[in-house]
């Protein structure tokens, strides 16, 4: 993410907060509003960030991923059903990761091994995820009257979570905390580790990586599946951290907003996180403004991430460069 775009994002977030601050009702303190907006923003940003990180590992290795939505949706279902069956939330999260990674394995098999067009492969996964989870939620969850296992309890930062105004920010649930850790972890993995270097090499110039003795296929499989597992955590967020139920189509297009965040963030973990925060902040503003009786053009809020992404892609606010080999199957020889 370029410095200019980073400042642009900061300015946007500042403007969002300022907008609420100036228009809020007199009996709620500014600090409360700011803290509340921040809390809401972090909450909305969690699945977006996870989705964007999932897409990042995938695309950094040169495999386009428009199937974040499908991976998250199927993981949301898998996490829910396993948690419900085992009555273990931890098992549910693991199941979410396994399901996400399994969908990713399908994506990798199709696009890396069989060299199916990566967009087509992503489309297959999205359609399949919607159909299979819808079908199973009717035929299994409904028929067997399966009840959810509840939600992951919040983890409180000892002293800080008891503070009056900002307290809620420091009592997030595990996946929200894990997301922050994953942003840092993903940055470290991608830019500081051997595997990260190889993933990036494979995504930029696969023949160079191949010539250096790296298996392009294995690296892509691994990266896509790591991404899938992260998408799986994002899916588990919906059914184990946000609400204790699974609903068909409950990811509600967030996988595509995550894709937008990934692009807006220039395919970097920090950038994707900041972009997710920005998009989440727009939603938080939408909610907060209504709370204070300010009419908001909802459709404009709804368009915000998508318009911004097109603008960025068109190069109007700095330019983003995708990994050079994204979308191209690697054919050795």
């Amino acid at each position: 993410m370029t410095r200019g775009r980073f400042l642009f994002v900061l300015a946007c977030i500042g403007a969002l907060v300022a907008a609420v601050e100036t228009l809020r009702s007199p009996d709620v303190s500014a600090a409360v509003v700011a803290a509340s907006m921040l809390a809401t923003t972090l909450r909305f940003a969690t699945p977006l960030t996870l989705g964007a990180l999932a897409g990042m590992f995938c695309e950094r290795s040169g495999v386009a991923n428009i199937a974040i939505e499908g991976m998250m949706l199927s993981a949301a279902f898998g996490a829910f059903i396993v948690a419900a069956m085992t009555r273990s939330l931890a098992a549910g999260v693991v199941a979410g990761m396994v399901v996400g990674a399994t969908m990713a394995l399908l994506h990798a098999w199709l696009s890396v091994t069989l060299r199916v067009d990566q967009i087509v492969s992503g489309t297959v996964i999205n359609i399949m995820a919607a159909g299979v989870t819808g079908f199973l939620s009717t035929e299994v969850v409904r028929r067997k009257a399966i009840e959810g296992a509840g939600l992951l309890p919040a983890w409180r930062v000892p002293v800080l979570s008891d503070l009056p105004v900002v307290g809620p920010i420091f009592q997030q649930q595990p996946i929200a905390w894990a997301t922050l850790a994953l942003v840092i972890g993903a940055h470290f993995v991608l830019f500081r580790t051997v595997w990260g270097l190889r993933v990036r090499a494979v995504g930029e110039l696969p023949r160079a990586a191949h010539a250096a003795g790296i298996s392009v296929q294995q690296t892509r499989y691994a990266a896509v599946m790591v991404g899938g597992a992260i998408a799986g955590i994002g899916g588990a967020y919906f059914t184990l951290e946000a609400v204790p139920v699974f609903e068909p189509m409950m990811t509600n297009g967030r996988g595509f907003i995550a894709l937008a965040a990934l692009i807006f963030g220039g395919w970097t973990p920090a950038g994707a996180w900041v972009a997710s925060l920005l998009f989440a902040a727009a939603n938080a503003l939408h909610i907060n403004a209504q709370q204070f009786g300010i009419p908001v053009p909802s459709q404009i809020v709804g368009m915000f991430p998508y318009v911004l992404t097109i603008v960025i892609l068109a190069g109007a606010i700095g330019r983003v460069t995708p990994p050079a080999a994204v979308g191209q199957p690697y054919v050795p020889d």
Binding site: S298, M303, I310, L313, G315
Partner: peptide, 27 residues
């Protein structure tokens, strides 16, 4: 046009335009 002029990948822009179209319709 975006693809031809700026190289913005049509897969991404058309996905985004789907959502924008939906919001436009809503409005």
């Amino acid at each position: 046009l975006l693809k031809a002029r700026t190289g913005a990948h049509e897969v991404i822009t058309t996905i985004m335009l789907n959502y924008i179209g939906g919001q436009l319709a809503s409005y």
